[in-house]
Design a protein around this nucleic acid. Sequence first.
DNA 1: TATTGTTATACTCTATAACTATA
DNA 2: TATAGTTATAGAGTATAACAATA
Lengths: 145, 145
Amino acid sequence: MAEQIHTAHLEALLGYNTRRAALHIIGAFMHNMAPFNLRPAEFSVLSLIRHNPGITSRQLCAALSILPPNLVVILKQFEKRKLIARKPHPTDGRAIGLSLTAQGEALMAEAEAVSAASDLSATQSLTATERKTLTRLLQKIYLQA
Amino acid sequence: MAEQIHTAHLEALLGYNTRRAALHIIGAFMHNMAPFNLRPAEFSVLSLIRHNPGITSRQLCAALSILPPNLVVILKQFEKRKLIARKPHPTDGRAIGLSLTAQGEALMAEAEAVSAASDLSATQSLTATERKTLTRLLQKIYLQA
DNA sequence: TATTGTTATACTCTATAACTATA
DNA sequence: TATAGTTATAGAGTATAACAATA
């Protein structure tokens, strides 16, 4: 019962290690973002809108691998919270350009600072160089193919 | 509309990068494991039972961060598929020791080979050295604290 | 005909409360 | 009283099908 469990075989898999590390970092993220009432997907949507004013739903879905029906729910809540504004797209009558309200901008200025601090805190066992190396290798995986 | 979306701010977050990479690798894993009818959590449970015969539910939950009620469902299906056997624990009457049946052993011998191949294929943009470095850094994150 | 945004809905994953039997 | 295992259920997260408006 008090025996040591052998996990070496699982720990040889990059899928297992990546998932465990992601859960660790994102767990801290969710805890630190709770005061802002933002979950990971919601934060990333607002962040992309902030740095790409006028972005459309379709572009958000493509960039974040979110399915359109699920984004609709997120944007609806943001509008209710007065964090985003919808403006007709200049050239495409079907599309709608998204941008942050002053309130959304204020929220995200704080939230992005907290997210960076949370990231550092959750990976404080790494040196700055190791963080940079890790970032490069992870992006090599999902930005290829 | 055809504008380039700026994702630099998100890509500076380790949480974002780790999650995207995990989704990439685990997507391949699920695709390759479909013939075995094993999803990620199910595979890891069977793998731990295989390399730790006699392991208990509680030990599985602790090692894999699975909540007991969710493990019950998984084990019930495994028993229906005749992949695992339950034997009373030698010293603790409350606990039950888990082990693979011959059928479960045969399935996992194949499944673990496929999982390793899937892992390599999903990270083929990395060199062997980079994979080793990545594994070390990821484990440093979630095995600490 | 293809695409943007939307609705409704289903399925999976994860989490909580409460129970039983053994320690 | 504490722990191992279980039941039932609720909540997120993710997925598919089908539609209206515009290109």
